[in-house]
Design a binder for these strands. Structure first.
Lengths: 120, 120
DNA sequence: GCATGTGTGTAGTAGTTACTACACACTCAC
DNA sequence: GTGAGTGTGTAGTAACTACTACACACATGC
């Protein structure tokens, strides 16, 4: 399995893989599209600064075509819409998540599919 | 249904219902057991200050025999162990939670029970 | 050889979080 | 009438979050 990257390492690798074939993915260009200072992005990619806020992470996900939830997780965060859902029925979701914590992926996936395919 | 209380109102009502029969539940006594300043708890109960951190909320839950997840939710937070679980498999849990967001309680509860009762 | 673009270094900051410390005013028991 | 206990008011703060602004050094194209 691939060794787990830090948030910054992940960003840098994602961006550098794209800049190889598209000059629009220089650190400065990406920073501009995302709406942050280049020096800030530079420090983030080198893990010299802690990851940015959720809004900036989401913009980065869009620009780099990465999964926002994965990026947020690497940043030590959880999407605010998920938090709101949990908070709306805390006992229910707390129980469910704790039950599923030790379940293998395929079991959880089966649940997701069953719910989605409307046997409910 | 009972109108939704704020974090502070909930705390105050919980504590006052107990102080009626047990003098050990004065604001000062509870604050001392929890390990915070009485004036701080006073402001929290009147929603003059934002809710405290997770550790203090957990202590309050213990002292007042309330559900920590409910208290955390009222405080606008989610238990850090749940966050860690979600972050460990972000795509999986993000999908699941978004699927379940609009499901009625009883459907989610059925899931919880099925998982717990080991049809997995 | 100069403009343009690249990443990075240094310095600073406004806002939020999570509290402490101490003084004050009131009530009630005895 | 004073001592113990009650809640509250005022003031302050250390640490963290989430950034900006600007200057610097290097490379590369033309």
């Amino acid at each position: 399995m691939p060794k787990p990257l830090t948030f910054g390492q992940f960003l840098r690798e994602s961006r550098e893989s794209k800049v190889a074939t598209d000059r629009g993915f220089s650190l400065r260009k990406v920073a501009e599209r995302v709406g942050i200072e280049p020096s800030y992005l530079s420090k983030i990619e080198r893990d010299e600064q802690p990851p940015p806020g959720e809004a900036v992470i989401r913009q980065l996900a869009v620009e780099l075509s990465e999964d926002p939830d994965v990026l947020l997780a690497l940043a030590g965060k959880v999407s605010s819409d998920l938090l709101a859902t949990i908070r709306s029925r805390p006992r229910l979701f707390a129980d469910l998540i704790r039950q599923l914590k030790s379940m293998p992926d395929h079991a959880v996936l089966r649940l997701v599919r069953e719910v989605r395919d409307g046997s409910w």
